[in-house]
Amino acid sequence: MKNVKKWFAIIVFLLPGLLLFIGILIAPIAVSAYRSLFDWDGFTEGTFIWFKNYKELFTSKSIMFGNALKNSLILAFFSVFVQLPIALGLALLLGRKIKGEKFFLSIFFMPVLISTVVIGQLWLKIYNPDYGLINQLLDLLHLENLKHVWVAEVEPIGIFKNVPFLKNIPIALGSIIVPTIWQYVGYHMLLMYAGVKGVSTDLREAAMLDGATAGQIDRYIVIPTIKPIIRVSVIFAVTGSLKTYDLVRILTNGGPFQKTQVPSTLLEDMLFLRNRYGMGSTISVMLILLCFAFALVITAVFRERDK
């Protein structure tokens, strides 16, 4: 009797959560995986075509998934190698008992709270070719030759002209990368700052007594201690870049000429522009697999380095 009561309670307590979780997350993923093997328009039954969607995804010249994936990986590259170092630098500086530490922390975190759609609209006004902030300021400074159409420009970014790998990044993609970095530096800084503050003051003082400079303390004590947090930040930055959608939709809509297309916008186009629900499901499945794969690889890399 007691057991019946217990199991009844367990089931009742779990039921709402399980219904939501299975109904909206788990079952749809299973359906996505199944439907990714179909040529399907979303309304008819569709035809089962095995892995042809996956093959087409990576080979088709009209879908250009490779291009979309490359764009999101470029975003991931800049997030990891530009955004995270800035965030780490700020977190370490604020961890040094700077006057106004809490004030700076609060300001730097502020952009995280603003909706990406608002950020996107705001930057559209900054980038506007005729009346935008950047071009108007360039006019005032008589630097007309630096003016660009920004979000609609296929031209590669000037400063990377001689850098291998980066020399073909169009300005349009660059104008998505800048606000993304700008918005989320504060987020990663906050996580790292929480880690920096967790380093025991005894350890710091002992190092100081041994004559270590602030830089050495950061390098040899603080950074190794907050490594798990850095790992989480790297995973968030990479999977966040793979999932990116809002800023692309608002700033460039994937254009010009698909140059800024990312997997999520491609997924939406498959549904609404081409009625290809099977292919849309394939992109969903690829996104889940890529997010999990990158999370595992990043964790493995960090573990390897610890040895």
């Binding site: 979780f21 909206i24 997350l25 788990i26 079952a27 749809p28 993923i29 359906v31 996505s32 439907r35 979303g42 999977t239 793979l242 999932k243 959608y245 997997p263 999520s264 997924l267 549904l271 629900y277 849309g280 499901s281 992109i283 969903s284 499945v285 996104l287 889940i288 997010c291 999990f292 999370a295």
Partner: peptide
């Protein structure tokens, strides 16, 4: 598991 699942994962079936 839900912490790593992207919102895009369920969009097609939920939409249908």
């Amino acid at each position: 598991l839900g912490l790593t699942i992207p919102i895009q994962a369920s969009i097609v079936p939920v939409y249908v």
